[in-house]
């Protein structure tokens, strides 16, 4: 095997991106739990941890640029580094969204819409992210395609949840409570939107994996 140091750098990049994915997933888990339990300390940990994710993102982005500049990868190596470069951005965005979710946990005083099951949507989105990271680690385009297909269900769940909130607002006169209700409702709608966005980023990751493994850009466009 020639170019052993280069091969080592490629393996290290894969391991580092997976590790970053796991950290992001941990932050997302923390945000989800904080939303459910209103655990302020946990929410603050997630928010404060975003800097670490951003630093990791910049370090790994720099590693990718270094590989492009110094090793000039081609063929499957090129697709791997290019895909990793893009996947890093999606993971960093998921980290940002976890921070948003943790912020909503700090502000929300009570759950006014128990029929909107944030935990259920959040868990399904989490599985998509975890499976996408696993597909990247294994270079498995099959898993990536299957994960991407799940996005339609998430979109449907989020749309139904949003409609539930909006319909309640239209239907009910909350009188003096209107301002507080509107604030909580908007926060819940933002929560739903951000969960949907996390799923979208998981799909982006999957699209890059399919390109990386099969040179197929059908999911990218």
């Amino acid at each position: 095997m020639a170019r052993t140091d280069y091969q080592r750098q490629l393996r290290a990049l894969r391991a580092d991106v997976v590790e970053m994915g796991e950290v992001v997933l941990g932050r997302y888990d923390g945000a989800l739990t904080a939303l459910e339990t209103k655990d302020e300390e946990l929410a603050r940990e997630v928010i404060e941890g975003d800097d670490e994710i951003n630093e990791t993102y910049l370090d790994l982005e720099s590693d990718c640029i270094g590989l492009f500049a110094l090793q000039q990868p081609v063929a499957s190596d090129l697709r791997f580094v290019a895909a990793s470069f893009k996947i890093l951005t999606d993971l960093e965005r998921i980290g940002d969204l976890a921070t948003n979710l943790a912020g909503y946990a700090l502000d929300a005083e009570r759950q006014r819409y128990p029929e909107v099951d944030i935990r259920h949507i959040g868990e399904r989105v989490r599985t998509m992210v975890a499976d996408a990271i696993d597909a990247y680690d294994r270079s498995d385009a099959g898993i990536a395609r299957e994960v991407a297909l799940r996005d339609d269900d998430i979109d449907q769940l989020c749309e139904t949840a949003s409609e539930t909130v909006v319909a309640d607002l239209l239907r009910t006169n909350y009188g003096d409570e209107s301002a507080a209700i509107l604030e909580d409702a908007s926060r819940l709608l933002l929560t739903i939107r951000d969960l949907e966005r996390v799923a979208d980023h998981a799909v982006n990751v999957c699209a890059r994996i399919v390109y990386m493994v099969e040179h197929d850009d059908e999911l990218i466009y």
């Binding site: 095997m1 020639a2 091969q7 063929a75 499957s76 090129l78 697709r79």
Partner: peptide
């Protein structure tokens, strides 16, 4: 050729795995 060669041997050659 440089993004997605069909041949594994070409892939190995241009990525520097042999040659």
């Amino acid at each position: 050729i440089f993004e997605n060669p069909n041949s594994d041997r070409v892939e190995d050659y241009i990525t520097g795995k042999f040659g």
